[in-house]
């Protein structure tokens, strides 16, 4: 059976429960669903928002490419990845991954793999907006994210 990932790049928010329901609806072979959601932090009051820029077309294509590898590698029964763009306020959602499998380890690994590769290869960039109105800069890429990705090799 071929499992097609569900990939969404959108400005609007997403709903965790309805995304889980979309993966599990009518299925009786799923024993584990892992969800990861990433939210915008205010960095102890320093930030008023994050601005998310993306490469339209390539962002979806790259997320789909990673998702297809994850489905194959962990024999997932469902995989959804949603990433928002535009201005996102502290406390709001940025990214969602829903991974479904017969057992928990594959679901945990699938979600983790998806996030580790999404962070380092899906074309999205974050710019910080300061709470005091002063200009802040683009978020720098972290070596720790490359390390997290490389552990899957």
């Amino acid at each position: 059976m071929i499992v097609e990932p569900r990939i969404q790049v959108q400005s609007q928010d997403f709903d965790l429960q309805s995304e889980i329901d979309t993966v599990t609806a009518g299925r009786k072979n799923i024993g584990a669903v892992v969800t990861f959601s990433g939210l915008c932090r205010d960095e102890h009051g320093a930030l008023s928002a994050l601005e998310l820029e993306h490469y339209p077309g390539m962002a979806e294509a790259e997320m789909r490419r990673i998702a297809e590898i994850a489905i194959e590698r962990f024999s997932l029964l469902g995989l959804t990845a949603v990433h928002r763009y535009g201005k996102i306020m502290p406390g709001e959602n940025i990214v969602l991954v829903v991974a479904a499998a017969p057992h928990r380890q594959a679901a945990f690994d699938g979600a983790s793999f998806m996030m580790d590769f999404l962070k380092t290869s899906a074309p999205f960039w974050k710019k910080e907006h300061a709470a005091d109105g002063t200009a802040r800069d683009w978020v720098a890429a972290k070596d720790a994210d490359d390390t997290a990705r490389d552990k899957w090799r």
């Binding site: 390539m58 990214v95 999205f124 960039w125 978020v139 890429a141």
Partner: peptide, 10 residues
């Protein structure tokens, strides 16, 4: 051809 900095999504 797309030219950009290292990605920082997620």
């Amino acid at each position: 051809i797309g030219i950009f900095p290292p990605m920082t999504g997620g």
